[in-house]
Design a protein around this nucleic acid. Sequence first.
DNA 1: ATTATCTATAGATCTATAGATAATGC
DNA 2: ATTATCTATAGATCTATAGATAATGC
Lengths: 226, 226
Amino acid sequence: MTRSPWISDLHWVRIGRQTRSQKTQEAILDSAEALFSEKGADASSMADVAAGAGCSVGAVYHHFRDKRALLYALFGRVSEDFRATTQDAVDPARWEGASIRDILKGYLEFSLELGRARPGFQRAGLEASLRDEKLRANLEEAHAELERGLTELLLARRDEMGHPDPVLATAFVLDQLGSMLRTRLDSVMRRSQLETRSDEEFMREVLVSVGVYMQISAPVETENKP
Amino acid sequence: MTRSPWISDLHWVRIGRQTRSQKTQEAILDSAEALFSEKGADASSMADVAAGAGCSVGAVYHHFRDKRALLYALFGRVSEDFRATTQDAVDPARWEGASIRDILKGYLEFSLELGRARPGFQRAGLEASLRDEKLRANLEEAHAELERGLTELLLARRDEMGHPDPVLATAFVLDQLGSMLRTRLDSVMRRSQLETRSDEEFMREVLVSVGVYMQISAPVETENKP
DNA sequence: ATTATCTATAGATCTATAGATAATGC
DNA sequence: ATTATCTATAGATCTATAGATAATGC
């Protein structure tokens, strides 16, 4: 397993030599993730984190040099997860024989699921990255990676598109989907009007919209590819 | 001029009796707006605000009971601006004879301009509303108001739409445009790939996408026929 | 013998106020 | 005579550390 760049000499995290060490460290990260997601890193004190992890403040500082190191380690953990899942999801082999529509449907389902599995984390990430260039760069890079993967998958199927400029159309569609997903998953920007509509209806309309915009062939009634 | 609900007994703001009073108060609000937009309310101390306004901390507290009152007053000022502009923008009289395309183009231009005139404020608003129910409700209401106005304007032109469900189509399109604008204007979520494309190209593609989705009559200057 | 944890606390902010001083306008 | 401002500081957090105590594994 490759170490995340955030766990480095600069942002020191102790590598434990007793078995209990790892358990505590994970409990601290879990507690931090829960707290930071709910009310942000700044509004959570190290005492809160310690309490949530069931240990003392001193123990937290034994594992993480300072609050920033804790934040980096947490981001490292989440972004490692995210990247592993993402890389797997955009693997061309996985989508052999799939249409643009299949891929986009998969992307929507995948994102909604992921976003709901870690509620609030995206917001916490955005907030934290406001104040830290490195986190921001990391966050952008993770998103860019996903976008690159999707772009390649779609452009490999440019024959399906009637749109005169497949590169532009792909960039536009990924912007559209990413933006709409963010709005939908955002814990603050919960628009009452939209919230009444189901994920299924949302996905259906998005696919209709993208379909006519890209001018891809009408949806075949047979569904489902993994 | 109606007083914003935020400037109330609950969230006390002093009404000055000397002419210099108002100047100081506005200087404080200006300073707060700049600081809060740039790094958020929590990360800005009252001493920072005072320094930015060129007065002492004591003076700030003379005008605003506490930090929250300052935040509320600031939001009141911005949201009053926003609502006045918005109400004017969605006045049906203003759009007589205009097509759906005209209206949406106007919306895009208006939003991009407004968002860039107050850079960072949207983000500051989101962040602040994370921790305060009232601000959140106010922010949502302001957005809902704009959305209602636009919805009415569009549904009054439902004859232009070939889409079988104009209500659904309108809601979807407003969600799409709102989301994409937010992404584009967001100071943090500045995606490198998108940033290279101009506002003009952005607006053009959005209008193409919405046009084919809603099935509104093709733009006068047709680009490509299927 | 070393590593991990806890307790207690110093030092750094930051909010908010009290009391002194300056400016305004009746 | 009242209103606005400033200076100085008390009180509340919160981060981070020092030193004491407990648990681990060679």
